[in-house]
């Protein structure tokens, strides 16, 4: 396990724990989304980069790169769609009330 990969994964892990701490601490759905979406993206992305650098380049790292790309694209989309649905629904309830 090369040292660089270990350090990068350490950073990724710290991001993930900060995100889960933020997810529990915040009161509002939107700030929870902000906390978990951003730090999840960074933390898990860093862990994947650490995995890619783990033991030199081999042909299976292409799948890891694809997964990193997938994560970096889909995570913001998911966070956006959850916050949009929460916003629209709360907005609609206010209109009805």
């Amino acid at each position: 396990m090369t040292l660089a990969a270990y350090i990068i994964m350490g950073f990724g892990l710290s991001f993930v724990f900060i995100g889960s701490l933020g997810m529990l601490r915040f009161r509002d759905i939107y700030s929870r989304l902000q906390a978990s979406g951003v730090s999840d993206n960074a933390g898990l992305g860093l862990i994947l980069v650490g995995l890619i650098l783990h033991s030199g380049w081999d042909r299976h790292d292409v799948t890891l790169l694809l997964l990193l790309l997938l994560l970096l694209i889909t995570n913001p989309i998911v966070t956006h769609s959850i916050s949009r649905s929460a916003f629209v629904q709360h907005h609609r309830e206010e209109e009805d009330a």
Binding site: I29, L33, D40, L44, L48, I82
Partner: peptide
């Protein structure tokens, strides 16, 4: 929506555990 967010976070982390 909190539960949906929790489900999404958990499944992202499970994906990373599978990769590890």
């Amino acid at each position: 929506w909190d539960r949906l967010l929790a489900y999404n976070t958990a499944s992202n982390r499970i994906v990373i555990v599978i990769c590890l």
